[in-house]
């Protein structure tokens, strides 16, 4: 690989752009393809193959007209927006960072969202719908609400349901969930949309402590990311 190509690749990685490094395994010739903003003049079949690999987040070989090409997918980190700077969010934020995710904790209540309580975790005191709009929720973003306060949680869930977020979770008991679903129904969300909300949130592993709750939520998030409905197991 030429040093110039490596520099371009590093620039894409640092600026958090999805990019595919395409290497001809016989000749060693390599180029970059941006699957969601393809450059002009690239073989459309190669662009389509890169797009497919990027969508599946799976680096793979592609048999092109000129031989076998390896498509190495580089995505920016998965993003997790935690709404509610509550106790569980402290564990969830740290664990998600260990898993390699970009975490943002959002809570307009300044008493909760303090740097002291969330050392090393990016914080925002915006209203969650504003924060979600600003960062641009995409198909590699997860949103989990944790405040139990409809004034804060509901706008976040509305924004998440209107986005391509791969995971939408809402903390709260079955009773809380039903009340929430009813409020969202009145806002016009059909059942199929409401079904996207994982609530009660997390896999049912009997989690009790905040750390265990974080493990249960992260496990469910990974499952949605890596084994989306209808996909082949990884």
């Amino acid at each position: 690989m030429k040093p110039e190509l490596l520099s371009q690749l590093l620039a894409d990685v640092e600026q958090k752009r999805s990019v595919v490094l395409c290497t001809d395994l016989a000749s060693g010739a390599a180029r970059l393809v941006h699957p969601y903003a393809p450059e002009a003049g690239v073989d459309p079949a190669l662009v389509a193959a890169c797009r497919e690999a990027a969508d599946a987040d799976r680096s793979q070989k592609w048999d092109g007209p000129g031989g076998t090409v390896f498509l190495r997918v580089f995505h920016p980190p998965v993003r997790l927006v935690v709404v509610g700077a509550v106790h569980i969010a402290q564990s969830l934020g740290r664990m998600a960072q260990l898993a390699g995710y970009d975490v943002l904790v959002v809570d307009p209540r300044r008493a909760f969202a303090t740097e002291q309580r969330f050392l090393g975790i990016p914080l925002s005191t915006e209203w969650p719908d504003e924060a979600l709009k600003r960062i641009g929720v995409d198909r590699r973003t997860a949103v989990v609400t944790m405040t139990h306060d409809p004034k804060i949680d509901d706008p976040a869930l509305v924004a998440a349901l209107r986005s391509d977020a791969f995971y939408v979770g809402a903390l709260g008991s079955k009773k809380t969930q039903e009340a929430r679903r009813e409020r969202l129904r009145r806002q016009g969300f059909p059942e199929a949309e409401l079904a996207r909300i994982c609530g009660p949130v997390g896999l049912p592993i009997g989690a009790v402590s905040p750390g265990e709750m974080a493990i249960s939520i992260l496990s469910q998030l990974v499952e949605k990311l890596r084994k989306p409905a209808g996909s082949k197991p990884a």
């Binding site: 290497t23 680096s59 070989k61 190495r72 990884a234």
Partner: peptide, 17 residues
């Protein structure tokens, strides 16, 4: 030098890429 896993069969420990 950079080494990249380009394909795996069976229970390989690390995925392609």
């Amino acid at each position: 030098a950079l080494a990249t896993v380009v394909s795996t069969w069976g229970s390989a420990p690390r995925p392609a890429g």
